[in-house]
């Protein structure tokens, strides 16, 4: 048993610069991929909920665009990211006659495109969950689709989908590990190298397992804090009532909800 812990400590002590580099790239790719994916999701969400134009030509363009988005979402949601990585990376090399994309950017591109497909559905869900009356109200005061989205719908959507976005981020931290098939030097890639050098499979992967957990756990806690912040304070005061302008209704702090 002490031998085992010695092995684990040895692995960390000997290879920590590479483990740190792996953590750096894993977090960079996961963060950039999630953010770009969210932007893709927002863009496709706004486009897909846009009412069809009266102009025949624009209407055709809109339908075409909606079709492309639907195909994109279905294809990238319906195939494994590992396969997408191989197809995009080597497909690009075949298409350009041998030049390959630099590894880290291609990792970010692959994760972004994949996450974008999920985000498109998350954002769409977020938009249709907003009460129809708000769209009608915005239309009544003469807002365009873009104005409605920017000033009324998207701020609410963003708050509502934050838990799902956080979920995607955590999934991405773990899923960057599949990028080792094209040689991206993320955490799992270094685990493979350390394993081959030390012949200590279990010990190496145990170290990496703990690192992944610390990463995802920290991220979920931070995002939970942000969520809480956006919710505002639990106890607040409602000032004034119809009969008495000086009335104050105090809403006390609620009991903690279990399983929160």
């Amino acid at each position: 048993m002490t031998q085992f812990f010695n092995d684990v400590i040895q692995i960390v002590a000997k290879h920590y610069p590479f483990l740190l580099r792996g953590i750096g790239y894993t977090m960079l790719i996961a963060l950039a991929g999630t953010l770009i994916g969210l932007l893709i999701g927002l863009a496709t969400g706004v486009l897909r909920t846009c009412p069809l134009s009266k102009n025949g030509f624009v209407r055709m363009l809109q339908k075409l665009l909606n079709g492309i988005i639907a195909v994109y979402v279905e294809v990238f949601r319906g195939t494994p990211m590992m396969v997408q990585a191989m197809v995009i990376y080597w497909g690009y090399a075949y298409a350009t006659g041998g030049s390959t994309l630099p590894l880290i950017p291609s990792g970010i591109i692959i994760v972004s495109i994949n996450t974008g497909a999920y985000m498109a559905e998350i954002v769409r869900g977020g938009i249709i969950s907003i009460d129809k009356g708000q769209f009608e109200g915005a239309a009544a005061v003469g807002m365009t689709h873009w104005q409605t989205m920017r000033h009324i719908i998207l701020p609410q959507v963003l708050r509502n989908i934050l838990p799902s976005v956080a979920n995607e981020f955590v999934i991405n931290i773990k899923d960057t590990s599949v990028l080792n098939v094209i040689g991206v030097t993320e955490l799992y890639y270094f685990a493979g190298i350390i394993k081959r050098e030390s012949f200590q499979t279990f010990q190496t992967y145990l170290v990496v397992c703990v690192i992944y957990f610390v990463l995802t756990f920290t991220v979920t806690r931070i995002l939970r804090l942000i969520e809480k912040k956006l919710q505002g304070s639990d106890s607040y005061v409602i000032c004034g009532s119809q009969s008495d302008p000086n009335a104050e209704i105090r809403v006390p702090k609620k009991q903690e909800v279990p399983n929160d």
């Binding site: 191989m86 090399a93 006659g97 041998g98 030049s99 098939v181 094209i182 040689g183």
Partner: peptide, 17 residues
């Protein structure tokens, strides 16, 4: 020298990478 997975070796050569 490029470190490439076993299954990626022939695609790498074929594509000219």
């Amino acid at each position: 020298i490029y470190a490439i997975e076993w299954d990626g070796l022939i695609p790498a050569l074929d594509s000219g990478a």
